[in-house]
């Protein structure tokens, strides 16, 4: 059901540009106004979310530990999975951000021998799927820079050459297009086929996947099947970059659909779970060293409590205490 809601939403997002740019011909709206708007919302929303996180105090020291913490000198510490130094923490963050180390440690519980024995096994599929998706996405993003730069820096050419190194067909097939489709399919099927995951999956979980699917499929269609005029599209995109928008006539509805879906992603991004792009850097469970026993973590939230010490109290009531014969500490 949740998947169905998400599917309907994404289909609606596909239909809007087909009607608006395709049937009604509002090319300037879909080609210029909406992209600028979406980019602005993305940037401001992203800043807003990160600053808001930055302003939230971290009351406790809560690094997740994945190994032996620093202890007696003869006990070997796991310096990366339970780092107690800054360097260790930085290495841990780098591994987390670039290689998704915490997903690599996923385990899976299984009952076997007629459900009488329990076993924990390693489960690397989510890690593999996630890494495949993110790397492909990043490469695809980098390849798209050819539309936004002139002359195109060599770095992007190399990425493109590397991606198409198999030289299958003309225009050459990019490996990342296949990989991203497989990865998205896996990430989706995982949610649908595993009962526990299906139970906790919300429409937003599916929405992001479907939206990405739609973007990838529209892009692939445009490259291999309903070919778009790349040269005219570059005129449009460079116009956007140089703030002199120009809308060539020949660009078709498929391109505007692709662009509108990307705009939707940009607008949706800051308000959704996709913000883990910024959030991963601000995760207290990852970016704090595990030095709980060496350094005191003061809760920045602590309210400056107004103290009224016993001494002050006694000063206040000394006369009355003496009258009543209660012993006082100071005469």
């Amino acid at each position: 059901m949740n998947a169905l809601y998400a599917l309907i939403m994404v289909l609606a997002l596909v239909i809007i540009p087909l009607l608006g740019a395709g049937a009604a011909g509002w090319h300037a709206l879909f080609g210029v106004v909406l992209p600028y708007l979406a980019f602005t919302v993305f940037v401001l929303g992203f800043l807003y979310r990160v600053v808001k996180w930055g302003r939230s105090p971290v009351p406790f020291k809560i690094p997740t530990t994945g190994g032996q913490q620093e202890s007696l000198p003869w006990i070997r510490q796991n310096r990366i999975d339970s780092p107690s130094t800054k360097t260790g923490t930085v290495i841990r963050m780098i591994l987390e951000v670039l290689l998704f180390r915490s997903l690599f440690r996923n385990t899976r519980v299984r009952l076997f021998k007629d459900e009488t024995q329990l076993s924990y096994g390693s489960s690397k599929f989510l890690w593999l799927g996630a890494l495949a998706f993110h790397v492909s996405f990043f490469v695809i993003l980098a390849r798209h820079m050819r539309f936004f730069t002139e002359p195109v820096p060599a770095l992007f050419n190399w990425i493109e050459t590397l991606d198409g190194i198999m030289q299958v067909g003309v225009p050459v097939l990019f490996a990342t297009e296949i990989v991203i489709l497989l990865a998205l399919a896996y990430l989706f099927l995982r949610r649908v086929l595993v009962p526990q995951l299906r139970y906790i999956s919300l429409p937003t979980d599916y929405f992001a996947l479907f939206l990405l699917f739609a973007i990838v499929i529209s892009g692939i269609l445009m490259r291999y099947f309903v070919r778009a005029d790349i040269v005219d599209i570059k005129t449009l995109t460079m116009g956007l970059i140089q703030l002199q928008p120009e809308v060539p006539e020949s660009i078709g509805a498929l391109f505007y659909t692709h662009l509108f879906l990307v705009c939707s992603l940009l607008v949706y991004f800051p308000w959704s779970k996709l913000m883990h792009l910024g959030g991963v850097f601000l995760s207290p469970t990852r970016n704090m060293p595990n030095d709980n026993r060496m350094r005191r973590h003061v809760n920045p939230w602590n309210y400056p409590v107004k103290l009224h010490t016993y001494e002050e109290w006694e000063d206040e009531y000394r006369d009355k205490m003496k009258e009543a014969g209660i012993p006082v500490e100071k005469e």
Binding site: M145, F148, T149, E150, P153, K234, T235, M238, G239, I241, Q242, Q244
Partner: peptide, 12 residues
Amino acid sequence: FPFWYSLGQASY
């Protein structure tokens, strides 16, 4: 990046 990369370049 694309914005400042294209700064000072002739229009496309």
